[in-house]
Amino acid sequence: MALLRRKRDDKEVEPAPVPAPASIPMCDALPRERVCVKGKVVRMTARPTSGQPALAVSISDETATVTAVWTGRREIGGITLGRKIAISGVPVLRGDHLEFTNPDYTLLPR
């Protein structure tokens, strides 16, 4: 037990995990305000952005659909169609939906 405790104390360099902000329904998210939303992946597109790779993922909850774009990659391990994920970032209004650029993401249990 003492050994365990010491090991825990040794880990002080590791930053405390930043608590994820509480998620809100997608329809309440506003452009240019940092939010966390949760939903199911309903569409995935690997798209070229001026010839550079990018992965665009549409995520839906019951209220709305948002898009997350990760630049520089065509896939992310664990993100598949139908998977529940939470993303947090600052969205912009693109057309009629909100788009996040390189948001933080968390894979949620199925």
Partner: peptide, 8 residues
């Protein structure tokens, strides 16, 4: 600016 602040 784009990612963290969504500057238009």
């Amino acid at each position: 600016s784009k990612q963290e602040f969504a500057v238009p």
